[in-house]
Amino acid sequence: MDLFGDSDNWSGKLAPVLKQYEGRKHPLDYHNRYQLLIMVVLSAQDSDAHINSIAPAFFETYPNIASLSVTDIDSLLSHISGVQNFNNKANWLLEIAKNLKKDSNIPLTMHGLTALKGVGRKSANVIMRESHVPAEGIIADLHVIRVAPRIGLIPETKDGIKAEKQLMQVFTKAIWGEIGMALSFLGREICRPKPKCPICSIKDICNYYR
């Protein structure tokens, strides 16, 4: 017996959420894979809205990995000094750029992406999902970590890696690429810290609502 419930049953129960959000673009306003990679690294412990606001000026100065790889730390810091943990992120971005050298070298596997500085499993899952490659995990951001235990999918946890592993036991691999982002959108729009339960499409199967 599955520790966290019947995977096929949960896939069916959450079909309305998948239908509502499947294929919707991530809130980071990127226009190519290079921009997505940079914005995902910058957005850790920061908001997507804030990263979207600084992105145009950043990418005007650094339109690709090649241009980023030849800049210096002081110039880079002037573009991201308002970002959370900006010193570390500047060093991570420079190391990524110097190692990859050009946009076409951005990896699209979990192993390849998580080998990059500042890219953990959550970030790698986002990049792979947005790049439409087969999923090797499930996005487990702060919204998913809040929503999944509320519904009854997994026990409550603050550990994104633990939450992801548990969700991978719940869901069939066929929906790994979409279910995490769908739950994230649900958490952003409806299942917020103060949830809007009456308008939720899955309230009838939700432990919190019941």
Rank of each mutant, 00 (worst) to 15 (best):
N88Q: 09
L3Q: 11
A140H: 06
T114L: 01
N64R: 04
T61Q: 15
D72H: 11
S47A: 12
I161S: 00
G177P: 01
G177Q: 04
L94H: 07
R210T: 10
E164V: 03
G5F: 08
N88W: 01
V147C: 02
N91S: 11
L36C: 08
K196T: 07
A49V: 15
N85Y: 15
L37E: 13
K122W: 01
N52W: 09
Y30N: 04
Y21V: 10
M168C: 07
I54T: 09
N99C: 04
F58Y: 09
A174N: 15
L142K: 14
H143C: 08
T157A: 02
Y30D: 05
D6Q: 10
R146Y: 12
L113C: 05
R129V: 00
M181P: 00
L153V: 09
L14Y: 08
K102W: 00
F86L: 08
I190F: 05
A97I: 11
P193F: 01
E136P: 08
W176L: 06
I65M: 14
A163S: 09
M110G: 03
A135P: 10
I205H: 06
Y21W: 10
K101P: 02
L3C: 01
L68K: 07
Y30P: 05
S7F: 04
E95W: 00
I65H: 02
T172P: 04
I138D: 09
W92M: 08
L3S: 05
Q45C: 06
D29G: 01
G118I: 01
R210L: 11
I127V: 14
F171M: 05
D48V: 09
P155N: 12
G118T: 02
C200P: 13
S184H: 07
E130C: 11
W10F: 14
I179Q: 10
D74C: 02
G177D: 03
P134Q: 11
A182C: 15
F185V: 08
S81W: 12
R24V: 09
A163C: 13
D8F: 14
